[in-house]
Design a protein around this nucleic acid. Structure first.
Lengths: 341, 341
DNA sequence: ATTGGCACTCGCACGGAATGAGTGCCAGGC
DNA sequence: GCCTGGCACTCATTCCGTGCGAGTGCCAAT
């Protein structure tokens, strides 16, 4: 694929098809874009592009439609992520700055992303595994009932109820609180678990071990709960209505996938940091039913360390440059907010 | 509407239509249900029912379809909520008992409800306004940065970051913590706000007022945040796929409504306690676009005090008895769990 | 009041013809 | 050697017209 004009033709086809949602013919192409050549010439290029598998014709007398391979080339070589306008940047910043806590930040991001891209937006909550512990709070709700509150650097708060067999005095609790916080404050989750194990199973056996052990174990459980890494926020589902045609082939499987958070996270892939946006197009993924959907995702997290992913999911026929720009911008602002908090 | 058989005919029409999704004719009716009369007789009844506005014929040579009025009569007089089977009850209890915190409880309930009814399920988080305060925690994250954690009786946890101008010593914080908790522990939100106002604006002006004031104000803000009453969990959207016909008239408006949490909550209506399930059918609500959707909802909360609503949303052509039973059952178990916690 | 009979209505599925957008190829021009 | 105008061809889509059949409404009989 060397020919310069051919690439322009492919780009034009993708752009037109994304806009009109209809197979695009040679004549319409030269009209809408100033290609400076005749339809016949374009037809030759299209024949070549089809030969190489970048486009395909749904049937003989229709125009051409990009294939997954065509989109891939378009994304990889024919597009430069256009930066957001100043107004858009202000809008993003303003919208996210109003958030009061992590839940709020995440749900605002989701809404924002879906509105910017007019696609379904997915935002994963920051993973526990690489956060650090900010504080552990032990609250006595009733004589034999404790509430453990685990506050993490990302702003995530995990809580666990704990029933104990014996009454716990306020002094005991204060002692444990100090002990636990001394062990885990500011420490990364993985090491915090180690430290807690030491507390849970000390060398010497003495009387109040039971309590300390169950508290430590509950905390370890909360910290290593992989289910909670599956927490995600989804928004903009109504944008699916825009392509209510192809309901069975595109919308339905996507709706089903959106319910399966695990599948969704696998789709979005590994969190990639550093402003790199990954694009998965159609059948490139392992899920056959989702051969008509693409994913544009990236990682985010404080200090460019990717703690979670965020992105949009939509039909292969989507505005990739726009989506990529929006995803990148939102990830960037989100990271900045986590930095500050 | 006195005639006994006519009611049976209406019931049969509703049941058949819900099952087959197709207009039901007189002949099919007498076959499927043992009505003991001839099709002609049923036709007469149908004519009368149509006259009274309970059913309607999409066109001359098709069967009849219930109107909203017909569904209403069906729900009000022709159905008794059938209790869940023992197995179903066990499944519900087992599924919900595994939850570790409020978020988990709510999301499990949502999933459960959508699976039981095969509809879209909506669960509102317990409202703040009638909860009581269980504990307030003040955590110092950095010299001039505090984290306020507000733990409520329902298990809800609200957090707020607070920047202060001066450094706060651990002793000051401990003092404030004691003071605040003494004022609000176990107190209902409304009164807690009163108590905090007293702390925020005391009679005498002394030096550490600034800090106490900003903490108290942040807590008041968190407690009276009406946005957080709009927190809801939605699940089972993929069930919409089951009626992908009528996409534009039914699915699309519903998807849009699901994004608008405020609209959705208004739809579900006031939380009604005491096992009463309310049903809103089609155009009975104020939203014209939702003339094809029904809502089956009820309130839930500890001790039968309705703190929030939960329910399912679906096409007017839905299994009302089944949905009502499931909604009631889930609300009941959910209330019980909140009781315990 | 119920029933069997019967004529009637009308949506829908099927089939053939017309339509036209778009293509591939070829011969001529820059 | 690449580009272009011309031309024959293909084939999905659209539009009618027809026949079918489910279902109704009405009526006379029981």
């Amino acid at each position: 694929m060397q020919n310069e004009r051919r690439l322009s033709v492919l780009r034009a086809i993708v752009e037109d098809y994304v806009k009109t949602e209809e197979p695009v013919g040679s004549k319409a192409l030269v009209e809408r874009h100033g290609l400076g050549v005749s339809p016949a010439t374009v037809r030759n290029d299209m024949a070549a592009l089809e030969e190489e598998g970048y486009i395909t014709a749904p049937h003989t007398s229709a125009g051409r439609v990009p294939t997954d391979k065509g989109y891939r080339l378009f994304v990889d070589r024919l597009t430069t992520v256009k930066p957001m306008t100043a107004a858009e940047k202000r809008a993003i910043a303003g919208f996210l700055d109003g958030a009061v806590d992590l839940d709020d930040v995440v749900s605002r991001s989701t809404r924002l992303l879906s509105q910017l891209t007019r696609q379904v937006a997915v935002v994963q909550y920051p993973t526990l595994s690489r956060s650090t512990v900010r504080h552990v709070e032990l609250v006595s709700l009733a004589p034999t009932r404790l509430l453990l509150v685990l506050i993490l650097s990302t702003g995530r708060v995990e809580q666990r109820l704990l029933e104990v067999t014996e009454e716990v005095s306020e002094e005991t609790l204060a002692g444990l609180r100090t002990q636990v916080n001394a062990a885990v404050d500011g420490v990364i989750i993985g090491e915090a678990c180690q430290a807690l194990r030491a507390i849970a199973h000390p060398e010497a056996d003495d009387s109040r071990d039971d309590l300390a052990t169950s508290i430590a174990e509950a905390l370890i459980e909360a910290m290593s709960d992989h289910r909670s890494d599956e927490r995600i926020s989804i928004g903009g589902t109504s944008n699916l209505a825009r392509f209510g045609d192809s309901f069975d082939t595109a919308v339905r499987p996507l709706l089903e996938a959106l319910e399966e958070h695990v599948v969704l996270l696998k789709l979005m892939g590994e969190a990639t940091a550093g402003g790199l946006v990954t694009v998965r197009i159609g059948a490139e993924g392992p899920y056959q039913e989702l051969s008509q959907t693409s994913v544009v995702a990236t990682g985010y997290g404080p200090g460019d360390e990717a703690l979670a992913t965020l992105g949009v999911v939509g039909p292969t026929r989507m505005d990739y440059p726009g989506s990529m720009a929006a995803v990148r911008a939102v990830a960037r602002y989100l990271s900045r907010i986590l930095d500050e908090a």
